[in-house]
Design a protein around this nucleic acid. Structure first.
Lengths: 344, 344
DNA sequence: AACCGGAGTGGAACCGGTTCCACATTTGTA
DNA sequence: TACAAATGTGGAACCGGTTCCACTCCGGTT
């Protein structure tokens, strides 16, 4: 319980001034005679001295730490994203403060305040979509902001890393259309989010390409939280003209949607061809294994971290970067041609 | 990009001394005239002043932050645990620094150093089992340590929160024994970990109770990382005398084990009755839904946080606390009596 | 022989809070 | 009425680093 040594303790033990010790600690900040450097390093070792982060932060004004504001760690997509980002950051010698918003704008606002208090130099976030002025304020304080997976179009000057949402939704839809399906249900995220809108757009675009008319009843936008996916599945299946295909484009609702499908005993793919967004590990453990759009989580993590670090070091041009990575479509056994279904 | 206001700016604008502002910020530290308090609060509001965490930390010496050192966020069990702990901590006004070890003692050591540098007051961890002297050093520096899920028996004076591992494994085993199974495979964690040992112990104890002799070949301890579970499944099924029951007691290996079971086309439960540890959401989406031992993640989170906060406030007796919470056995359709299987 | 420039060093201010202490004012009590 | 106690206030030291600056040695130029 005795207090840890300070830089002055080290200086005294090594018979030099604190300036010298500090210069040994940060080699770029000035010259030190090789002999003294040696001595100082030895003393540091002996005393097991470690500089206190708070002191350095206070005097330097910021800290090589990035905040990670993620919606929900209980969602495997975000959890894996966080895991990769934390891992990647460590290899760059950067700390990560992980915060969760549970999709609640108030909690998001809290998180941003906290990160501001801790003087983080950069933030990687999956924004809820609200708190626009708060994000702007953060930027105006010199904090570099990178959005990942989603974005807020109203906010300029933000780097964004996401999957090609329009294209991904289009490909999934076109795949089902090419199998002959005409009525395809879509469960997407809220239209208030960029991903929700983009995926609906891709869905529509595919219908135009195939000259298939589109029934707006088949599009359901549901919140990220809660069991909305299951309910949407229920009501889609209850339609007089039941869909023969289903795309679950809301990653947070895949579980509840699939659970409902299983509960209601729908035969997949005989009664319903299914594609879900995001390749959670269990999607190939179901019967049948589900066709998925796999989001390249590693790419998202690497790019977002690269961007935020690049900004922090001022190595990037000031124009905002938008990086879109392609998602892989992984066909499995949950889709079949409509032809197989006898007219009902 | 202009610099944020400091406490001295606030003092100047309110026409008081910094001491007064500080006392308004921390009410317990001294009296302030109601009128001045009012003024100061207004000025704080106007200037959008926020105290910088680093300055406070430097002067106070520690910070109301707990470190969370978790093995692997990509594992849903740990991810959910982290989610709950972060959430719970926030409601207590406490920050959480999340770090991951990927089960690597070196990374764990790094994490502990970092947490020490940041002067955290407490740490909640799922230890790898190594770094014993490092943990001890952390404690000797006055950091409160709580282990969750696993422990290191060699380390005294640590609070531990875990599920009743022996009992849980015993119940799972007894359930299969009571269904008439005599040859039950067990895939557990490494015997170097407390959970691994305890679950094997429960498995053995159940065999004694039922006076069923035990074939050591059926016990496989595999690492947490990698695909060991799948391989263990493969080799268990390749035994001349194949097991008719299987318990996967290594939460990190459930996925790879189940994947292998599905790949090899084993009929569950006809050929093999299966119980897995931990109720990941997808365990009821497989065919058939899997019988599971559900770890009460909420309880683990709440208790561990309560313990570490209690210690930090010095409200707990100095004797270490060990809290065991019971896991629920949730029977689903992946187990059936041995009788149903005709002699092969 | 006088001068210049750079390597190496230590002193001290500074970052933005907290807290101790001395002092002034008000209130309560004998 | 006098004096003790409680209340309120500001000054200044302090936490542990970083960094600016002045200063001392050097060797190398003219």
């Amino acid at each position: 319980m005795k207090k840890p040594p300070t830089i002055r303790d080290v200086a005294a033990a090594a018979g030099v001034s604190v300036s010298v010790v500090s210069r040994v600690l940060n080699p770029e900040s000035g010259p030190v005679a090789p002999a003294k450097r040696e001595t100082v390093l030895r003393v540091i070792e002996e005393l097991a001295y470690r500089p206190r982060a708070a002191a350095r932060e206070l005097s330097v004004g910021s800290t090589p730490t990035v905040g990670l504001v993620v919606a929900d760690l209980a969602n495997p997509f975000f959890a894996q994203l966080a895991d990769r980002i934390v891992w990647e950051a460590r290899s760059h010698g950067v700390q990560v403060m992980v915060m969760t918003t549970q999709e609640d704008p108030h909690l998001e606002a809290d998180s941003l305040d906290t990160l501001l208090d801790r003087s983080v130099a950069g933030v990687i976030a999956t924004p809820t979509g609200a708190n626009i002025e708060k994000w702007a304020r953060l930027q105006s304080m010199g904090v570099d902001v990178v959005f990942v997976d989603r974005t807020i179009p109203e906010l300029g000057n933000v780097d964004v890393v996401s999957i090609a949402n329009v294209d991904s939704a289009r490909r999934a839809t076109e795949y089902l259309l090419s199998l002959g399906h005409k009525r395809i249900g879509l469960i997407s995220g809220p239209v208030t989010t960029s991903t929700g809108r983009a995926r609906i757009e891709g869905y529509q675009s595919a219908h135009e390409t195939y000259s298939v008319s589109m029934d707006p009843q088949l599009i359901r936008d549901v919140p990220f939280r809660g069991e909305g996916g299951g309910d949407a599945v229920g009501s889609l299946l209850a339609l007089p003209e039941r869909p023969t295909g289903l795309i679950v484009a809301n990653t947070a609702q895949v579980q509840s949607s699939v659970r409902r499908l299983i509960q209601t005993g729908v035969q997949i793919p005989e009664d319903l061809s299914v594609i879900v967004f995001d390749d959670n590990p269990w999607t190939e453990l179901t019967t049948p294994p589900l066709s998925v759009l796999r989001q390249p989580i590693d790419m998202l993590a690497v790019h977002s971290l690269e961007l935020v670090l690049g900004r922090m070091q001022g190595k990037l041009p000031s124009t905002p970067r938008v990086i879109e990575v392609n998602a892989d479509f992984v066909p499995r056994s949950s889709c079949s041609p409509l032809l197989l279904t006898p007219s009902r």
